[in-house]
Amino acid sequence: MNQQIPDSNARTAEEFLKGIWRENPVFVAVLGMCPVLAVTNTAINSLAMGLATMFVLVFSSLLVSSLRKVIPKQVRITTFIIIIATFVTVVDFLLAALTPQVHKELGAFIALIVVNCLILGRQEAFASKNSVKLALADALGMSVGFAFALLCIGVVREILGNGSLFNIALFGEGFEPWIVMILPPGGFFTLGFLLLFFNWLQQRRKLV
């Protein structure tokens, strides 16, 4: 993109902001789908997953970008995976100690953060080529964007499927929840329709 001033504050801000909206990992790049659909049946689970992913992505990016001159080219992918797996193990044990309830509900999906293509993708495409400061901005932006997308889906699914938000009931007794929304098909539908909505927004903007 803009390479004239490599480390300016403006560029750092730019790298941070792009992940949140313009290059949003879920809505635009459609990366890391497994956790996006699997754990977003309630807003709390979505938030926990978003934070766990953020922890792993930020620390992996920090480590990878500070070691980028030491890691040999041939074994870089393996190195990235080992670094990521280490932080995922840390987050797994952290969540088990801090919030056993959430840890139980997310189950194996915390361990599966390792194979989230978003994280490996950012290491390969960005952190391994840029300074620590830029890599940090990029990782923060991407993970905020990811958490935001997870929360969007989680909020929609919890309101429709359970009639509540963050476990607080929103509607009266008369509300008949759409059970299907908290079951697997609801995940596919919610994301499908959200993508549809963003496509429609984009097309409208082009016409204007």
Binding site: V30, P185, G187, F188, G192, L195, L196, N199, W200, Q203
Partner: peptide, 17 residues
């Protein structure tokens, strides 16, 4: 508007149902 990933996800949702 619906072409691409959006359509695939909705098809997958119906399959999943």
């Amino acid at each position: 508007v619906i072409e691409g990933t959006a359509l695939n996800l909705i098809i997958a949702g119906i399959l999943s149902m």
